[in-house]
Nucleic acid binder design. Structure first.
Lengths: 168, 168
DNA sequence: CATCTATCTGAACGTTGTCAAGATAATCTT
DNA sequence: AAGATTATCTTGACAACGTTCAGATAGATG
């Protein structure tokens, strides 16, 4: 039977939770800030029991990483779009920097989570080889945008400029 | 009575707690990592009840800020020392960068706390005007080291270099 | 001395992350 | 088709956390 999982229906089996949980996480992040982002709050917001997420994520950290990853995807998309809207390489680079800082400005809570999970992933040795680290992800996007390895200086300048603007 | 610790005067009831708490915090930070740094753990390590810290610090956040501040002091001292050991301005700047990255490498847990409390202080509006933000603190040290405002590029390059090296 | 005030303890409340057992639904097997 | 299997969700519990509050204790002050 084509199970109609409307919002009004609350069947025992939620359509696909992992997605809903990440969305709930982002909703909480936007409305109540990073401090309110707890496993239980996410489950509450998604309308499931506090133990439900454990069938889709190993840890609280795992959930946060999922939220974080979505953030990096969107940042990557924004960066790619910014790059595509500039003619030459130089202009693309500054455009990318602007896109980066705009993203961090518009989604401060998300950005904080992104940064935190990247930090935790390297401070602890738990997920050793995931290795996207987000930062490098965007960095590669920058390089892909037309920055030579020789352009490292400008590249880092753009990145740090964005970071400084976002963090004070 | 049990813990006759270091040769220190005990001007008050059970000694000088606020100091002991910060030291305990750093001990935990070094031995068990940032995740283990809880208010209760600090109190436990200092040999007092879980409620004792509240007579010296308003919050958990307040305690963390104290630990963090000590970290910034030491970073500042390391930076100052590195500066004093270099002859001209250019050499001082690179020296400072090295000192910075060394500090972050040698005390990763402390550095994490330092960064976190700086972040929280600006993300939330709670302590709005403390405004040292740590980052700028060191930045001013860099500027004080001999960097003109015109040298901003090099300055930021050094800082971001240190940051990148510390964070991946 | 009595008193006051700062400091510490003990117990409690609400919340969090996490796990073990049982209920329920979708899927696979025959 | 029905029965067995697997994936999903709930209930209930546990320890640990941050925080508060009513008392205990000791140094300072009159």
């Amino acid at each position: 039977m084509a199970h109609a999982h409307e919002a009004s229906d609350r069947p025992y089996h939620h359509g696909d939770l992992s997605r809903a949980l990440v969305q709930a996480g982002r909703r909480i992040l936007e409305n109540e800030g990073p401090a309110a982002l707890s496993l239980r709050a996410v489950a509450r917001e998604a309308g499931v029991s506090p133990a439900a997420p454990y069938h889709h994520f190993k840890d609280k950290c795992d959930l946060m990483n999922a939220v974080s990853t979505e953030g990096w995807m969107e940042l990557g998309a924004a960066v790619a779009k910014a790059r595509s809207q500039a003619p030459d390489g130089r202009a693309a680079m500054t455009n990318i920097g602007v896109a980066y800082v705009c993203f961090a400005r518009d989604n401060p809570a998300l950005y904080r989570i992104m940064y935190d999970s990247a930090c935790d992933r390297e401070t602890m040795g738990d997920h050793p080889k995931e290795a996207d680290s987000g930062w490098r992800h965007v960095r590669e996007a920058l390089i892909d945008a037309g920055a030579d390895p020789a352009d490292e200086r400008e590249l880092e300048l753009a990145t740090i400029g964005a970071w400084c603007a976002a963090h004070g």
